[in-house]
């Protein structure tokens, strides 16, 4: 039985796809059989972040409609044996994601994999609802910014009322907070909400804090999940996140500005 993890946020552009790619790769590198599914029908881009866009033949909607079987649609990652990508359709409408169809695909994947990571589209509409409905765990990706925190809170309301677990009265979805695009220097200057500020409002289990990092754009340019950039701050933060998700007790890093001497702060900034 796979565990189904949704990467969600409400707000767009906060780092869901970056996080989905990182979490899926990190789990697979630790030997877990993992599939990552792009639920952003019509705006697929997980395949770009994973660097497998030229190998897409069939997609999630083809499988739901019975036009292809799962094995035809799943793309095996070239860097990691245990990782597969199920791309979204570029041309169809979100309504093609039927609840029965999604359930059938997830049930089938559950038999062969340890983790299914669902990359949610933005919004609180049908696509986002389908991505979170069957989840066991939810990673709520949030930026330290008013609209993002607010949307995350709304998403928490939806997770606890409109998911399969909520409707069946099962144990609730486990909710985790991932704070991304965090700029410790701006936090220190009082210009940006701190982890503690955000936690005071959302009070979730903190899975990690990913700093604002140039490595993320570099990684997406190259089609390599940033978690593979072991030298980078974001890559390391994502690695810590995966370890924490799997139950390891890893201290949080990148919460404080890099210590600079007084003079270098004056002249470099």
């Amino acid at each position: 039985m796979a565990r189904i993890i949704v990467i969600t946020s409400g707000k767009g552009g906060v780092g869901k796809t970056t996080t989905s790619a990182a979490l899926a790769m990190g789990l697979a590198q630790r030997g877990k059989r993992t599939v990552v599914i792009d639920f952003d029908v019509g705006l697929r881009n997980l395949d770009l972040i994973m660097g497998c866009e030229r190998r897409v033949v069939y997609d999630f909607i083809n499988v739901i409609n019975g036009e292809a079987n799962l094995n035809q649609a799943l793309i095996r990652d070239k860097r990691c044996d245990h990782l597969y990508v199920l791309p979204a359709s570029q041309t169809r409408d979100k309504d093609a994601l039927t609840k029965e169809g999604v359930e059938r695909v997830l049930t089938q994947l559950s038999e062969d994999y340890d983790f299914v990571v669902c990359d949610s589209p933005a919004g609180i509409e049908h696509g986002a609802n389908m991505a979170m409905y069957f989840a066991d765990d939810a990673v709520v990706v949030t930026n330290p910014e008013v609209s993002s925190v607010r949307d995350s809170d709304r998403m928490l309301g939806i997770l606890s009322s409109r998911s399969r677990r909520a409707e069946n009265g099962d144990e609730p979805i486990r909710e985790y907070l991932l704070l991304t695009r965090y700029d410790p220097q701006r936090v220190a200057n009082g210009e940006m909400l701190s982890v503690d500020d955000v936690q005071e409002i959302l009070s979730l289990h903190l899975l990690g804090v990913v700093p604002e990092s140039k490595a993320v754009l570099n990684a997406s340019n190259a089609g390599v999940p940033v978690i593979l950039d072991r030298e980078s701050d974001a890559g390391q933060a994502y690695n810590d996140m995966v370890s924490r998700y799997l139950g390891e007790d890893v201290p949080h890093r990148f919460l404080n500005p890099e210590k600079k001497g007084f003079l270098s702060r004056l002249f470099k900034g």
Partner: peptide, 18 residues
């Protein structure tokens, strides 16, 4: 800085939403 303003606004917003 403006972070404290952001936090106060959020607390009100979120309480209202909830």
């Amino acid at each position: 800085g403006t972070a404290n303003v952001a936090k106060e606004r959020l607390q009100i917003l979120v309480a209202h939403d909830r």
